[in-house]
């Protein structure tokens, strides 16, 4: 997804934002806009609250911080953990760090793709899961590792995959 560079901030912004998005951003902005290095802080916190930073939200933040939209967009696209579209209800991150790679991470990717019927980076139709790759969550001694939301599952074998999904609705 990209941002229309000609987007008119004053008109587009307010109509396309949901009240939740707006209030979350206002809250984060009012507490952090004057802190040094505000862009990263604001983006991180907004994403933490809302889960994504859509193009209208980017425009809103740019306006509030008084920086060009291109700056926000540039920062957002540089870091891999920012996203512009909502996640599924649960995020599955399969680790492909060195330790997990040599201990079977690629196999888990195949299996999760099969079980969920989506490819890496995609979200299931029922919006339940988003499948992603990550690079080392710092639990290498448990390799191969899968992270579902905040839970870290270690020593996952392909046979565990279906079971691992059960508790997430």
């Amino acid at each position: 997804m990209s941002v229309n560079p000609n987007m008119d901030l004053t008109t587009v912004v307010d109509v396309t934002l949901t009240p939740e998005e707006k209030s979350a951003m206002d809250e984060v902005l009012s507490a952090n806009r004057d802190r040094p290095g505000a862009t990263m802080l604001v983006l991180t916190l907004v994403q933490e609250k809302v889960g994504y930073i859509s193009p209208p939200m980017q425009a809103y933040i740019a306006k509030a911080l008084g920086v060009p939209l291109s700056h926000i967009y540039g920062v957002l696209t540089f870091y891999s953990s920012f996203r512009m579209v909502p996640l599924g209800r649960h995020k599955i991150s399969i680790c492909l760090g060195t330790a997990c790679y040599v201990r079977g991470g690629p196999m888990l990717i195949e299996k999760y793709q099969q079980v969920l019927g989506v490819k890496m980076g995609e979200t299931t139709e029922d919006n339940r899961f988003t499948l992603e790759i990550c690079r080392c969550v710092g639990a290498c001694s448990q390799a191969p590792v899968v992270m579902i939301d905040e839970d870290i599952l270690g020593r996952v074998s392909p046979a565990d995959v279906s079971k691992s999904l059960r508790k997430y609705e």
């Binding site: 990263m40 920062v75 891999s80 920012f82």
Partner: peptide, 23 residues
């Protein structure tokens, strides 16, 4: 301060750029 998933930010000058809020 938190990173946001960019390996190169471990490099010291990149890390400082990141704290400053930039790429």
């Amino acid at each position: 301060r938190m990173g946001a998933g960019a390996f190169v930010c471990g490099e010291e000058t990149a890390l400082m750029q990141s704290i400053e809020g930039a790429r």
